[in-house]
Computed example of a mutant assay.
Amino acid sequence: MQTAVLSSRSLRIALPLAAALTLVACAPMSTMYSQDSLPDAVKVPAGNKVVLQTVGVGEILYECRAKKDMPGQFEWTFVGPDAVLKDRSGMQVGRYYGPPATWESSDGSKVTGAQVAVAPAGTGNIPHQLVKANPATGMGAMTQTTYIQRVATKSGVAPADRCDMGSAGAKQKVGYQADYIFWKAS
């Protein structure tokens, strides 16, 4: 009988706690976001507000190619990303892939864009980036996106491996992570 009382008390505590945690996990992501620590070049102009914050985890594909207008010289060239977009609770909410660079929501809406600026993000990390969005396709989370910021980057830079005539055409994937912040006109 005492076991049943303890189980009943445990359930009275556990069920509301579980319900609260479920609500937090399903609640819309907070739009509290500060650009204060970012370089000016990648700050979104006034008149826009954050509507979605995601964490992209995936890979960037590089290919060893001849340098443009530099005969006999080669470099690792960015080909495109392939990443899963997750919300702050870890739930998958979309994908980021390319070329062209495309952010696609799980609801089917998607957006591409043109790079406006980049700024250094520390040794070994791809740079911060500001992208001006093109009109979205489909109706959903990406509809009316004006800007996309890439911040909080980790890794993702071109390989350090040899890239020369003998390795031309070689491809390598490099793991990375970055926050993608989506903005709409306010």
Rank of each mutant, 00 (worst) to 15 (best):
L61V: 08
T77S: 10
Q2I: 15
A46K: 10
T123P: 08
Y180I: 01
G108F: 00
D179M: 06
M139Y: 10
A121K: 06
Y96A: 11
D164K: 03
A117V: 03
M32L: 15
R150L: 00
Q172N: 08
I181F: 01
V131A: 06
W76V: 02
T102A: 02
Q149T: 05
C163D: 02
F182W: 10
D87S: 02
S34P: 07
M165E: 15
Q53D: 13
N125T: 05
G156S: 08
V116K: 11
T123A: 11
A185Q: 11
L23M: 07
M139D: 14
A20R: 12
G169L: 11
G138R: 00
T153Q: 10
G108C: 01
S167W: 05
T22V: 10
M32S: 15
G175D: 14
R12M: 11
R95E: 14
L130W: 01
G166H: 14
V57W: 07
V118M: 11
L6R: 12
A25Q: 12
R95M: 14
G94R: 02
L61W: 08
K184M: 05
R162W: 12
K67N: 07
Y97D: 13
A14W: 11
Y62L: 04
T143W: 04
G94K: 01
A101R: 04
T102L: 04
A119P: 00
V84T: 10
K68M: 14
D69L: 12
M1T: 15
A117R: 04
S105V: 10
L23G: 11
A27L: 07
